[in-house]
Design a protein around this nucleic acid. Structure first.
Length: 431
RNA sequence: UCCGCGAUAGCUCAAUGGUAGAGCAUGCGGCUGUUAACCGCAGGGUUGUAGGUUCGAGUCCUACUCGCGGAGCCA
């Protein structure tokens, strides 16, 4: 038998149908019972009148508890008073499994309680909406690169050494080969891919063992990292702009309903069209000074600095050419000023902050060797990476976009912990 | 790691150093159009843990545990 979902109801008006799902909420008014059914595709109010169903069915309406799995049968009609615009005139109700007392009631809860019950919290309408937007963002990201001829080339998750040599990594024993680490970035492998396939992207989980404790940090998060051979910093920024515009515009057009559930004001997101402002690090420092921020030239931009800078603009801003000391060893120096790295960060508006970090890579073997020594990195571990400069090196560039921060921005969420089904944070690895 | 805040009923919270309370949830009753429905009644507590001050501690002090917000670091 063909399964019918709530999202298909417009095709069944006037017909008697059977739907399966869970009881989201119920209300009663003596001789009328209202049961809100959810099935993952939507919500449907089912109405049971005492006069039009058997006494057994009417009694079941009282017995059935929140989140019980149920099967409802009745006639579909349009009903502007009900959620979703449709209503089921119920004739039958079957309980598939009666739920025990459900911990998440239709009232306020604290974040600790909700996080402890994350596996159940995911059933509530807000979380469902977030997961649907997340999925659409992932699809938009993949569509964008696929349509431009990029090849998805996955990078390993277990790696022999730090990619950037700075962050603290999760460590594990790897048979007789000593220690292995959970990757913090697929970028170095993406570079190998770019020199093999021209345009590639990696899209997978990455790990940071930093004891970060802010609304922007997870220990496990997803990152998409495109890498393009023969691209310089400007090409990279062009790609970033086109990419962000595509993802944001596609998602807000295609997930309007979910963003409405999240009460997201779309004004700022609709603004998110090319060209984006591009400012240098020096310009950014000027902005901070004008805002009376005591900022030391040469430092990296902090969270509050980013907020002040991004608040100057009505769409994402690209900040380029940072002091090389605060950036990774593999970034190419600016030929016009060796103190600057050809890096670019993207700061999202509305106080969201950094969502992208990227750069043109150092393609000169000797300079890269110098950088590795300066950063005190073990050269042996990077021999394969250096080979990319020994055998047909080319200018190339790429960037990494943090998926959860992007989801948080588009959904208008305070904290990234709601943007991933099961967040991993410094004080939480359950459920 | 550092700074700040917090822990009381299943959940969210209240309670001048003096008998531990409300809303929601649960159970029972009422209501033929409810929208976190509403109205009435009932059950529900080792106040995070361990010490201390006091005639008396949920409340004051000390330590610990757990969590939350932020900083640093980063996407």
């Amino acid at each position: 038998m063909q399964k019918i979902y709530i999202s298909d109801l417009k095709n069944f008006i006037g017909q008697e149908i059977t739907l399966k799902g869970w009881l989201y909420n119920k209300r009663s008014s003596g001789k009328v019972k209202f049961i809100i059914l959810r099935d993952g595709t939507g919500y449907l109010q089912c109405v049971y009148f005492k006069g039009s169903v058997t006494p057994e069915v009417f009694e079941l309406c009282d017995k059935v508890t929140q989140e019980s799995s149920i099967e409802v049968t009745g006639r579909v009609k349009e009903e502007p008073r009900a959620v979703g615009g449709f209503e089921l005139d119920g004739v039958d109700l079957k309980i598939i499994s009666l739920s025990q007392e459900y911990p998440i009631t239709p009232k306020e809860h604290g974040i600790e309680f909700l996080m402890d019950n994350r596996h159940l919290w995911l059933r509530s309408s807000r979380q469902v909406a977030i997961m649907k937007v997340r999925h659409r963002i992932i699809k938009a990201i993949r569509d964008f690169f696929d349509n431009k001829g990029f090849v998805l080339m996955d990078s390993p998750i277990l790696t022999p050494a730090a990619c950037e040599g700075t962050s603290t990594l999760f460590e594990t024993e790897y048979f007789d080969l000593g220690k292995a680490y959970l990757t913090q970035s697929g970028q170095l492998y993406a570079e190998a891919g770019a020199l093999a396939l021209g345009k590639v992207y990696t899209f997978g989980p990455t790990f940071r063992a930093e004891k970060s404790k802010t609304r922007r940090h997870l220990t496990e998060f997803w990152m998409v990292e495109p890498e393009v051979a023969f691209n310089d910093l400007n090409d990279n920024m062009d790609l970033i702009e086109e990419f962000i515009e595509y993802v944001v515009q596609t998602v807000i057009a295609d997930r309007e309903e979910e963003l409405k559930v999240l009460e997201r004001d779309l004004t700022s997101l609709k603004n998110c069209k090319r060209p984006f402002p591009r400012i240098s690090y020096d310009d950014a420092v000027e902005i901070l000074k004008k805002n009376n921020i005591d900022f030391q030239y040469g430092n990296d931009l902090g969270g509050t600095d980013e907020t002040i800078i991004s608040n100057q603009f009505d769409r994402p801003v690209l900040v380029h050419r940072y002091p090389q000391e605060v950036k990774a060893f593999y970034m190419k120096r600016d030929p016009e000023n060796a103190n600057l790295a050809l890096a670019v960060d993207v700061l999202a508006p509305e106080g969201v902050g950094e969502i992208i970090g990227g750069s043109q890579r150092e393609d000169n073997l000797d300079l890269l060797l110098e950088r590795i020594k300066e950063h005190d990195l073990p050269q042996e571990a990077f021999e394969w990476y250096l080979d990319l400069r020994r055998y047909g090196s080319v200018p190339h560039a790429g960037f990494g976009l943090g998926l959860e921060r992007t989801v948080g921005w588009i959904c208008g969420l305070e904290h990234v912990r709601e943007t991933i089904p099961f967040p991993r944070m410094i004080y939480r690895n359950t459920p």
